[in-house]
Amino acid sequence: MSEHKAPFTEQQFENLIGNFLRAGVILAASIVLIGGAIYLYRHGAETPEHHVFHGEPQAWSTLAGIFSTATLKRGQGIIMTGLLALILTPIARVALCLAAFALERDWMYVSFTAIVFGLLLYSLLAA
């Protein structure tokens, strides 16, 4: 961000991104921890079956499904919400960069960042 007349310094921008990433990870970890505690409380005594792959039920592989199970206060739904928050952290970081490049009127990097953002959204929503 060393362009002339930048509305913010490079250091400010780097601090913002750094803090943002840290907050995202802490938030995601906290949600997973809470969900994990509930999950273990309810299912801790069962033996997991991860050596057989059966795919996760529809409820945990769509956004709407996750939120509806999470709102039912079920441990696994809350864990999935936390994992989703974790995946969204770098995606939101890209959005943040997009806004910063736009403020700098650096259209070349606005378009680069927009491509990356589009690919990430495609992966999460459409694929």
Partner: peptide, 9 residues
């Protein structure tokens, strides 16, 4: 995620 490869447990 959408293919169900991410297991919460």
């Amino acid at each position: 995620f959408s293919r169900g490869y991410i297991d919460p447990g």
